[in-house]
Design a protein around this nucleic acid. Structure first.
Ligand SMILES: [Zn+2]
Length: 652
DNA sequence: GCAAGGTC
């Protein structure tokens, strides 16, 4: 900002190792100094709940991990002493407004305070914002303060109530948490895992065919509907054995053009890092932040897929080409595009930051993972300026006694952007397939039946949870990965290899919250907050009114729970094996709900009964059916447990 | 000690 406003005339100083800049303009001295996110946080001295009294305190006092912010706060205090006017130049959003407001309120003077409004950190925008200073953006500040207070009220009160109830039921002290973003996320994880645990596979039969073509074995893909009945497929296979030929129904060749990839936003980077390096989203974010703090890449916590038109890509290319690894790639790219660098910007936007790009600062020796991520970011940056890749796709449709199969082969016509970002699997190239013509008759060397079982929803991963949060619009680029880690820290979730599992505690907390505080497990609470914030920003609603209402509602909910603590503990016993369980499920110890089992195993029993008919029609009797679903890995855990129980015990 | 949101 100092550079945009005064160029080289801005003089750099530092206080407690933090830089700030001073310049003169129109006879006035201006000082530009950085904050570091929120320097203040909400806090209370009160124990117990409900708690509705809180105040803003310096962040470093509240949390040992934010000690770094102390120096930034002291810098502000130091510089504000000699100043007469104050300008908030944080990102123009509700959080930026709160950050600046609290500094000016604490150390400056709100009656001589202004706001710079810019949507990107470009010289033009910054100069314009400075020339046209706005008065303090009170509505934006009010909206931001309101968001903080609401999240604090809901989060702290519900976390305390939840901790108390579960601690009491389990007879040990636990620190649990609930919140507007984490609780719907936990609920979604529980929903997916519940579906997986209740899954009963169904057998489906597929024909599998082997062809021989010029000495090469080919296995075309069956494109028809699978057969629920094995005998029907068997009779078709008999016909194939008598007349083992596949008829080439059609050969389609078409040229496909694949557009260059969009510049990275954080979640696209997290997706690619998981796909290519198998690292989780929080890890990717941390590594990207390290690269950013080393000035190697731009700000990573962005949703934007757009590179700004003002970005000097030519200089960046020049710098990148100094790295031996990229020298040739940059040269080829600059030739290919004839010196005109136009990125293939994507649709996603960010109110404050552009897409992620390498700055051109040359990295020194990086740790292996940092180096790999830097490489992916740099190659993606190169690729987005390149030309479309062109591929020729050959699709051969085969008819074998009325069954349709397809053979595919992919041939690259022009590699285009794939030269820079070659991490894409286009499918196999099979020269023999290119020689097949319509009307040909191919010899079938072997035909067999393949049994596959229907699968449950795909396993949960940190990335799939993050994508879900993004999809439903809760959390931000900065917080999503971190909030998933909180669910792990609370031991609601744990890892099983690359997969995420929910613990009994996690299941219990999700169901208990849904029963006691349905608002907090619903993404609708975020939508409600957004509506309030918008109305406050427009000046049509007052923060005091919203906060007062929230306090009344939360107090009412909490006091109700306090009065009905016994009921709450009973609700918990439905979902968690506790000492208060009177009539335990013989499998898991949760309170028995149906005739035999707990709520989950009872559901599994119902599903086992409901699905028997399908299996029976393919020749399994009850005993064989139970043994089969017990032995299949793909069967849901709760279903397997009930099948096991039924095989060993007799129900009335 | 508990949230979610900034960022070193
Ligand atoms: Zn059970």
């Amino acid at each position: 900002i100092a550079y945009a406003l005064a160029g080289a005339k801005a003089k750099k100083y530092s206080y407690k190792r933090i830089p700030y800049w001073v310049f003169r303009q129109n006879g006035q001295v201006h000082i530009v100094a950085p904050s570091a996110g929120h320097l203040f946080t909400l806090s209370t001295d009160l124990k117990g709940y409900p708690v509705v009294d809180y105040r803003w305190v310096p962040r470093w006092i509240e949390n040992r991990k934010s000690l770094f912010s102390k120096r930034f706060l002291e810098l502000m205090e130091f510089l504000c002493k000699g100043a007469i006017a104050f300008i908030n130049a944080c990102d123009y959003d509700i959080e930026g407004s709160v950050i600046g407001f609290l500094v000016i309120m604490s150390f400056g003077n709100l009656r001589n305070a202004y706001r710079m409004k810019f949507s990107s950190l470009t010289i033009t925008e910054i100069r314009n914002a400075f020339r046209n200073l706005s008065p303090l953006d009170w509505n934006m500040i009010e909206a931001g303060l309101c968001r903080h207070e609401l999240d604090w009220l809901w989060g702290i009160n519900l976390s305390r109530a939840l901790s108390h109830i579960v601690s009491k039921a389990l007879g040990k002290r636990l620190i649990l948490s609930a919140g507007r973003v984490q609780s719907p996320t936990l609920t979604e994880a529980v929903r997916i895992i519940t579906q997986r645990r209740l899954h009963i596979p169904e057998p489906l039969y597929y024909p599998k065919i082997f062809l021989e073509l010029n000495g090469r074995m080919l296995t075309p893909e069956f494109t028809g509907k699978p057969f629920p009945n094995k005998a029907v497929l068997q009779s078709i296979l008999m016909k194939i054995k008598y007349e083992p030929y596949a008829f080439v129904k059609s050969v389609d060749v078409h040229i496909k053009s694949l557009a260059p990839p969009h510049p990275f936003n954080l979640s696209d980077l997290q997706t690619e890092a998981y796909r290519l390096l198998r690292i989780g989203p929080a890890r990717t974010q941390k590594v990207a932040e390290d690269l950013y703090l080393d000035a190697l890449i731009s700000y990573p916590r962005t949703n934007s897929q757009k590179l700004p038109p003002t970005l000097d890509n030519n200089s960046i290319m020049k710098s990148l080409s100094k790295m031996p690894k990229y020298t040739d790639l940059v040269r080829i790219l600059m030739n290919e595009v004839r010196g005109v660098l136009k990125p293939n910007n994507g649709p996603k936007e960010d109110p404050a930051h552009p897409a992620i790009y390498p700055t051109g600062v040359l990295p020194k020796q990086l740790p292996p993972l940092h180096e790999k991520l830097y490489d992916i970011i740099t190659r993606r940056y190169l690729a987005t300026f390149s030309l479309p890749a062109r591929i020729r796709e050959i699709k051969v449709v085969l008819d074998i006694h009325g069954l349709n199969f397809v053979l595919k082969s992919v041939h690259i016509v022009n590699r285009g952007w794939l030269k820079y970002y070659p991490f894409i699997d286009l499918g196999p190239t099979v020269p023999e397939i290119a020689k097949i013509r319509k009307g040909m008759k191919l010899y079938v060397t072997k035909a067999q039946i393949l049994t596959r079982y229907t699968s449950p929803p795909p396993p949960l991963t940190k990335l799939s949870l993050l994508k879900w949060m993004e999809h439903v619009g809760i959390g931000t680029e900065s917080t999503r990965a971190e909030i998933i880690e909180i669910l792990f820290k609370r031991q609601y979730l744990h890892s099983k290899g690359k997969r995420v599992e929910v613990s009994d505690l996690g299941i219990a907390v999700a169901y208990l919250l849904a029963d006691l505080f349905p608002h907090i497990v619903d993404i609708g609470l975020t939508r409600k907050f957004e509506e309030y914030m918008e109305l406050i920003r427009e000046g049509r609603l007052k923060r005091e009114v919203v906060v007062k209402e929230a306090k009344i509602l939360i107090k009412k909910l909490i006091e109700e729970i306090k009065r009905e603590e016994r009921r709450a503990i009973e609700v918990l016993a439905k979902y968690l094996s506790t000492d208060t369980v009177k009539n335990p499920c013989p499998i898991c110890g949760r309170e028995r709900q149906g005739k035999y089992f707990c709520i989950f195993h009872e559901k599994a029993l119902t599903r086992i009964r409901d699905n028997f008919l399908k299996w029976n029609s393919t020749g399994y009797d009850w005993q064989e059916y139970l043994e089969k679903i017990r032995s299949l890995k793909i069967t849901g855990l709760w279903v397997r447990e009930v099948a096991e129980f039924l095989l060993k015990n007799r129900l009335d």
